Simulated scan of single mutants.
Amino acid sequence: MDIGQRLKEIRIQRGLSQRELATRAGLTNGTISLIEKDKTSPSVASLKSLLDAIPISMAEFFGSIEEPDTPKIFFRAGELTQVAPVGPGQVSLRQLGNARKHTLQVLHETYPPGADTGPEFLAHEGEEAGIITHGQIQLTVGDIVGVLNSGDGYIFDSRLPHRFRNIGTEPCKIVSALTPPVF
């Protein structure tokens, strides 16, 4: 997906100038321009700030989610919806089902070595929990920093500023849950 082009299309559809979107998202005009020209790739935190300023969810941004007449219960690996930018060295967030139809959002997260959610801390309503299924992650919540390994888990009030960073040498995989859905 061409993230910059998609952002530009949605910004224009919503009648927003680059300057107005930048102000709403707390970013610079130049940053918006660079993203739209695909000269830079936003972090998960920056993209979330941009999309919250529009407003549109990451799931809506990255594609349409089928809404069948009957609830879908089972999902194969290929049926999870990508809800974050994907590229070399970037965090991958894949969503189970349609978060707009549930009060719980389940994500399969992959952090390549050195990848993180961005220099900006995330903060949003609700709670967040997860279990590391492979590798190692450094999680910062407020002023508390912890290093978690495969089999370890976390749960916290997601209104607290937080950031995930893979400090290991292999990819880190996490199965997480958020309530209410925010991505």
Rank of each mutant, 00 (worst) to 15 (best):
P181W: 00
H102T: 12
E120R: 15
V147F: 13
E170T: 08
F164K: 05
I73T: 14
R11G: 11
I65C: 12
L34W: 12
L107H: 12
A45L: 09
P112V: 04
P71F: 04
G4Y: 08
I137Q: 00
R100C: 15
A53Y: 11
F164S: 01
D152I: 08
G153E: 03
P71N: 14
H124S: 01
T140G: 04
I144Q: 15
R14I: 08
E9A: 12
G168T: 12
G78L: 02
M58S: 13
E127K: 01
E36W: 10
R163W: 09
T117R: 01
S46V: 11
N166E: 08
F74G: 09
M58Y: 11
G15M: 10
S150Y: 14
L27I: 09
S92L: 15
L27V: 09
L80R: 02
R159N: 13
Q138K: 10
P171E: 00
T169D: 09
T40I: 10
T117F: 05
R24K: 14
H124W: 07
M58A: 10
S49L: 13
I10Q: 04
Q5I: 12
I132T: 02
G168V: 07
R165K: 15
V145Y: 05
A129C: 07
R165C: 09
H162C: 08
F61Y: 02
G168S: 07
V145S: 14
L7C: 03
G142E: 08
P112H: 08
E20T: 03
T169G: 05
E109P: 04
L122I: 10
F75Q: 14
T28Q: 03
R11Y: 06
G78I: 03
S92N: 02
G118L: 03
L139N: 13
K8D: 06
E125L: 02
Q138G: 14
G63F: 06
G87S: 08
P181C: 00
Q95C: 10
V86E: 15
A115R: 07
A115P: 04
